[in-house]
Computed example of a mutant assay.
Amino acid sequence: MDTRQLEYFVAVADERNFTRAAERVFAAQSTVSAGIGALERELGVRLFERDPHGVRLTDAGRAAVEEARASLQAIERMRDAAAGDGALRGTVRVGIFTNLTTIDLPGIMGEFHRRHPLVDLRLGPSPSGSTGLAEDVRQGRVDVAFLGLPDRVPGVLTLPLADSPFVAILPVGHPLAGAGSVSLAQLAGEPWVDAREGFGNRVRLDRAFAAEGLVRQVPTELADLGEIPRFVAAGLGVAALPELTVLPAEGAVSVPLAPEVLWPLSVIARPRPSAAAQALLDLLAERFGIPPSPTLEGP
């Protein structure tokens, strides 16, 4: 068994598809299939069930894939330790939000590249928002991820970055559009435009409504927070978003919520991050002016 076989195994387990896995590891599909076959023969078990609907892990595969991830992480740390010139190498996979426009993410990543030009960065969102990013880090599919969930995620390192207040997003013709502030109770009876369930801002806002004993209807759900103000402007309903995530839209206005509802922004990483991932955590702490001391939540 070799490192590439483990990489193929993890890629197929994540993608549930040999073609996408081959694209991810920059190999031919036949090479990935052959590598998986060789690994199955060496282990003496089937790792995947294959049918016309796709690929899924067997019970043995589910047990083995976690060990494969741990082995690849250990190899990465060994390479870090053996680097004789002190230059960081490798790849950092970063889970991001596509709408954090008030945070200069390109500038941060550009600075990281200038400091560590031999490290590759692979950035991407999750279709299920913060919930998906948290699971990606827990499962080792992502090294570092931004997070907007109200609760700490067990089993990962957490570095709190900021708390952003929610603001109501209203059409310009709304009776409360010119108010100094609005409450959730004043808006609860209206149709809402919001992120899909699982997104951190949706989780936080749902809890705020529940805490006040309020019920709302969300007939319009989006996967792109940046589009929500435009849908509000189009008359589909009202919304509330963390101020850090709001993209201005003609025909929509922002009004502070009172009482205040805060959205916690943090960054998480798997335990014992690689040297390159740790360097990115340190840079984020530097940019946000906070101590670079992430905490590990049990278990």
Rank of each mutant, 00 (worst) to 15 (best):
P117K: 11
L159C: 09
G198I: 02
V253G: 04
L281K: 05
G189V: 14
R20L: 15
V142T: 14
A188K: 08
L39S: 00
A134R: 02
R56F: 05
A188V: 13
E67V: 15
E243S: 14
G226Q: 09
R16C: 13
L43T: 01
Q29L: 03
A249K: 04
W192L: 09
A208L: 11
H53G: 13
P154G: 10
P127C: 13
G61W: 02
L280H: 02
I108T: 06
L133K: 09
V142E: 06
L184A: 02
E135Y: 14
L184P: 08
L159P: 03
G198M: 07
G124R: 12
G237I: 13
R20P: 05
L133Q: 12
V25S: 08
E40L: 00
Q73N: 13
Y8K: 07
R41S: 00
T158C: 04
D14V: 10
T98P: 13
T101Q: 12
I290Q: 03
F112R: 02
W192I: 14
E243W: 13
T131Q: 04
V218S: 06
T102F: 10
A34L: 00
A258Q: 10
F166W: 07
L296D: 10
F9W: 01
G237R: 08
T245K: 07
V32P: 00
G237S: 09
D163T: 15
L187Q: 08
S126V: 05
D85K: 09
S33N: 08
G90S: 12
R24D: 09
Q217Y: 07
L88C: 12
A276G: 04
G226M: 06
E297A: 12
A145M: 10
Q278L: 15
P191W: 10
Q29S: 10
L205M: 09
A134L: 11
T102I: 11
Q217S: 14
A162K: 05
A63G: 07
P273C: 13
Q186T: 06
R41N: 00
P256M: 12
P256N: 11
V238K: 03
R46E: 10
G86S: 12
N201E: 15
V10Q: 03
Q73G: 12
L236K: 11
L283P: 01
A177Q: 10
R79N: 11
E49Q: 12
M78K: 14
R56T: 11
A21M: 03
I108L: 10
D163V: 15
L43R: 03
T220E: 04
P248R: 12
L214R: 07
A83H: 12
L123R: 09
G289C: 05
L187W: 08
P291F: 01
V246N: 07
G178T: 15
V12A: 02
G298W: 14
A64I: 00
Q5I: 00
T91P: 08
Q139P: 04
G54A: 07
G200S: 06
D224T: 15
P171T: 15
L147R: 07
S164N: 05
E190R: 13
G129T: 09
L118Q: 11
E250Y: 06
D224R: 13
E67R: 15
A22G: 05
A223E: 11
I75E: 14
L283Q: 01
E227S: 15
V167P: 08
R24E: 14
F166R: 08
R141I: 02
V261N: 11
S33D: 00
